[in-house]
């Protein structure tokens, strides 16, 4: 009888092994989205006794929103508690520009580093060379360092950015900040919205500032024609948060390509850019995109 039971057990295993493997849904998203969870070194600058270590997620800088950290180690010197950052783009004709960034870096005393962000508007090329200028005060003395960096093509579409001129004639940048790795779920959608200010007199650089009090209306759609302009429920428009970024909710009902259709409204509720997209279900026909949109993929 033991033999029979053994035989049946073996038979069970043989028969129950599935014909098709189940999808490893979480791993599948990972193959599309490069994981960047660790802050790694981008470059190190030596400035006298001070060593400046620039860190970013994955150790690389990409077009779009980048969170950056600056660690300043000072051998035997007093601690540095203030630091500034200025990214400079140099074009072919040596003209310079900057991009949205946090100039006065925030000091995180717990971990002893400075924190900031840079929204690179272009990837590095002959037409756009990028340098980072750091300034810090130590021993009541201003120290400056400059470091050339390479800005890579954004490999994660969920961190895409868009730059445009609004109906008010101003130049804006919208950069996606989160989620880096969306799920088929409710996702907290975070974006930075920046406005280009006119250069102040005496300065050649025009600076960006965080757009305040705007509203970014959201309508996510699947662009694939066979999905017939499919959308999702329970999305929330992006509104400014205390951190200066814009926060909303996007629901992705399945993996794949999605288009985030936006309408940017100013403080008075006037449309700066963007158009209402039709919500008809049109199988076989790709949905119309808003004039202001960002494509994502996960």
């Amino acid at each position: 009888m033991e033999k029979i039971i053994l035989f049946l057990t073996v038979l069970c295993y043989a028969l129950t092994s599935c014909t098709k493997e189940k999808t490893d849904y979480e791993a599948e998203i990972n193959t599309i989205i490069p994981e960047r969870t660790q802050f790694e070194e981008v470059a190190t600058i030596q400035n006298g006794p001070y060593t400046l270590r620039i860190e970013a997620l994955g150790g690389k800088l990409y077009k779009g929103y980048n969170e950056v950290r600056l660690k300043i180690s000072s051998q035997g010197q007093p601690r540095v508690s203030e630091a500034t950052l200025l990214p400079i783009q140099t074009g072919l004709d040596e003209q310079t520009a900057t991009c949205p960034h946090l100039h006065q870096l925030t000091y995180k005393a717990d971990n002893d580093y400075f924190e900031g962000y840079i929204v690179f508007t272009d990837e590095s090329s002959e037409m756009a060379r990028w340098d980072l200028q750091f300034g810090f005060i130590a021993n009541k003395q201003q120290h400056n360092s400059i470091q050339h960096v390479t800005v890579q093509k954004q490999s994660n579409k969920n961190l895409n950015m868009i730059s445009f001129i609004g109906s008010d004639g101003e130049q804006y940048i919208i950069a996606l900040v989160a989620p880096q790795k969306p799920k088929v779920a409710e996702n907290d959608l975070v974006a930075g919205i920046y406005k280009l200010n006119k250069p102040t007199t005496g300065s050649t650089l025009a600076f960006y500032s965080q757009a305040e009090g705007y509203t970014l209306e959201l309508d996510p759609r699947m662009p694939e024609p066979s999905m017939g302009n499919h959308s999702s429920p329970n999305n929330k428009d992006l509104l400014p948060g205390a951190d200066g970024l814009y926060h909303g909710v996007v629901n992705y009902t399945m993996t794949g390509n999605w288009t985030l259709n936006f309408i940017l409204l100013n403080q008075q509720g006037r449309i700066i850019k963007g158009t209402v997209v039709p919500d008809d279900f049109t199988p076989g026909v790709a949905g119309v995109k808003s004039e202001l949109h960002i494509d994502i993929l996960f």
Partner: peptide, 20 residues
């Protein structure tokens, strides 16, 4: 109980769309 749904785009080089 597990059920999956995977839709294939018309251009098969694009990413498939998946949900449970």
């Amino acid at each position: 109980s597990i059920a999956e749904m995977r839709m294939y785009p018309q251009d098969r080089s694009n990413r498939t769309m998946f949900a449970y």
